[in-house]
Amino acid sequence: MNTCSWPDNNKMMQEYHNKEWCVPTNNDQYIFEMLTLEGAQSGLSWSIVLSKRDGYKEAFHQFDLEYCSSLTDDDLIFIKENYQVIKHLLKLQSVRNNAMAILEIQREFGSFSNFLWEYVDYEPIINQWEKDEQIPAQTELSKQISKDLKKRGFKFVGPVIIYSFMQSIGMVDDHIQSCPYHTNNRANNFRS
C-alpha cells in the first residue's frame, strides 16, 4: 500500500501521520492542543511546530484550559523568552484567548468537542483522494467554522488553519485511499 507522501522521511512527521492525523477525538484538552499548534503553524512548516510540541506542553501545563485561560501578559512574555515555542507574541496570546473561549463553549455545549462535531453530525468526513495533491487547503465547512469561531472571539482560526485543525482531530480523513492509515484500512478508528 502507498502511504501519504507529505511526512516524507521525517520520523516525527511520520509518527504524527501514523498515530494522530485524521484520527477522530472528543478529548477537549487534545483538541485545544491541536488548535494551538495549528494556529502556531501559520506561515511556518508543520515540522517546525511539531519540533516545539514538547516545549508547548511544558509551557502550557499540558494544555490545561483553566491554567491557560488565567495566564497574564507577563506570563506569556516569560513563556516566549524561556520555552521552546514559536516566538510570536500574538500567537502566544491566542492560547490564553482561545482557552477562555473554549471554557465558555464548554459551559454552553458541555464540551468543545460537542460544539465542533455537531458541524459534521458527529461523523467524520471520509474523503477518497487518490493522491496528496487533491487534498484542499480549505472548504466551505472550514470557512463556516472559522467564521463562527471568530464570532466567539477565537484568534488564529482562519479557514486554512481550521481545515488543518479538522484533519488533526479527525473531523476529516484526508489520508489517500491507498494509505494504510485511511479509515477504511485502519482497525482502530477513534482516539480517546
Score class of each variant (00 low, 15 high):
Asn184Ala: 11
His61Cys: 13
Leu92Gly: 09
Lys147Met: 14
Met171Trp: 02
Glu81Phe: 00
Val160Leu: 08
Leu149His: 05
Gln128Pro: 00
Cys4Thr: 02
Gly170Lys: 04
Phe78Gln: 11
Gln106Arg: 12
Ile48Ala: 11
Leu89Val: 05
Lys131Ile: 10
Met12Pro: 00
Glu108Gln: 09
Glu133Phe: 14
Ser42Gln: 13
Leu141Asp: 09
Asn18His: 14
Glu58Met: 12
Tyr30Glu: 05
Gly39Leu: 06
Lys147Arg: 15
Asn26His: 14
Thr72Tyr: 10
Arg186Glu: 07
Trp21Thr: 05
Ser142Gly: 09
Asp75Ser: 12
Ile162Pro: 02
Lys131Trp: 08
Val85Glu: 02
Ile48His: 01
Ala59His: 04
Gln128Ala: 11
Lys11His: 11
Tyr119Ile: 07
Ser111Ala: 07
Tyr56Pro: 04
Gly170Thr: 01
Glu123Asp: 13
Ala137Ser: 12
Pro24Asn: 03
Asp74Thr: 13
Asn189Trp: 02
Asn98Gly: 04
Met171His: 03
Ile126Cys: 09
Trp117Glu: 09
Lys151Tyr: 00
Ser47Cys: 10
Tyr56Ser: 08
Leu65Trp: 06
Leu90Lys: 11
Ile169Arg: 01
Trp117Arg: 10
Ala59Asp: 10
Ile135Ser: 01
Pro7Asn: 05
Asp132Ile: 02
Ile162Trp: 05
Ile125Phe: 09
Glu20Met: 07
